[in-house]
Design a protein around this nucleic acid. Structure first.
Lengths: 212, 212
DNA sequence: TTCATTATTGAACAGACTGTTGATTAGTTG
DNA sequence: CAACTAATCAACAGTCTGTTCAATAATGAA
């Protein structure tokens, strides 16, 4: 009995098609891909494609869903590891474990993630990824009552989540030089301290009022 | 002599096609649109389309370029209005003028911007918009020497720019309830104070070390 | 208004891709 | 080995593409 409960031929075929998809998206973008292209690159019969996928959009959707499911699974495992809150992690110089796990997963699936989150990628996937980021990130940030005069919460949320996606993209497209832990800490600092202080563009609070 | 130097028929045709594009992208997404769909909705001959555009991708590209050019033009006008720096604006409770202008333009072209920046939109356009945002935003933020131990500048940049795009999207998709000036100030606060303080999730620096 | 210019129309064309079918071959599991 | 089923190959009608042509209509300038 195999590890996977599907026929080996099916696994092989699907893998060939998915590899072809990643490669072709990198080259010409999803728009320009035909089912013909996919099956030629994967070296399988065109009819076989339709045995597994409705069309190329269905293929993309299945790939995306798989990635999101795996991500959700990874996140599940890490729940127990969290410290009580944000502050503790920061004061110990430790990033949030779930963010580290996220970057680790991104690194493993670098090729596909780069393509899907890139300029020829799928904006719908960005939305889905942001939703899942929001779910985990905000849980750790919103334990304290809010004071008046504040920015609306939805904009705070949009700001922080989008910002994290931006860091993810920057990291992916610059070759993932930093380790998952390092880049997770970078993202953490930017949010915890605020971008300007995290980047060292201000030294302390005194300089704020009477600036040069 | 007309305001525009092109034949009235051309202007009419192009406008019909562009309106059709916006509508169809809203309905079915760019992927699913055919040139046939466009010309039927625009009620013009299919051949006429090819007199103006190479294909539907060329159409999208021209529309995007036009928007970006207009944005750049709007930005040009506002250069003179800037105060000396970031701090002065913030201390006066005034957002950066170029951001206000940006939101004003987005509002005027709401339908197209919502579509192009939405889940069925074009990720390449997001990249281009972020580039132009970066150009204007960073100019006002990076006048001070940086201290050591800071987050790498590229990540600071990615963080702030992506965050702003996130605010733009949130605003567009929630019906643009706030005025351009209000939403610009919201974005400003989030970056200037940092997201957590801007959202009122911490009251002051004292709470930072010995948190609940 | 007239007139030369030119954008638009309608029809037709070959070429490409799609999604499906049926018979046949090849590989897998127990 | 034997039953099952995935993959192959060829063929199909249907749709969309991008181009061409002659005919028509709208435009802007004189």
């Amino acid at each position: 009995m195999s590890l996977n409960n599907t026929d080996r031929r099916i696994r092989r075929t699907k893998q060939m098609i998915r590899d072809a998809l990643t490669e072709l998206m990198e080259d010409v973008g999803f728009d320009a891909i035909t089912v013909r292209d996919l099956t030629e690159k994967a070296d399988i019969n065109r009819g076989t494609f339709y045995l597994h996928y409705k069309d190329k959009f269905d293929l993309l959707e299945q790939c995306e869903r798989e990635v999101l499911d795996e991500l959700a699974q990874v996140q599940g495992h890490v729940e127990g590891l969290q410290l009580e809150n944000f502050y503790e992690h920061f004061n110990r110089g430790e990033p949030l474990p779930f963010i580290v796990k996220l970057f680790e997963y991104l690194k493993e699936n670098g090729a596909f993630m780069r393509v899907i989150l890139g300029p020829k990628g799928d904006p719908l996937f960005q939305v889905k990824l942001k939703e899942m980021l929001a779910e985990h990130l905000l849980k750790h940030m919103v334990k304290k009552a809010r004071i008046e005069m504040a920015v609306p919460f939805d904009y705070f949320k949009a700001y922080v989540i989008s910002a994290h996606l931006g860091v993810i993209q920057e990291w992916l497209f610059r070759g993932m030089k930093e380790s998952p832990k390092e880049i997770a800490m970078t993202a953490f600092k930017l949010t915890f301290l605020g971008p300007r202080r995290a980047a060292g563009l201000i030294s302390d609070e005194q300089n704020e009022k009477n600036s040069p």
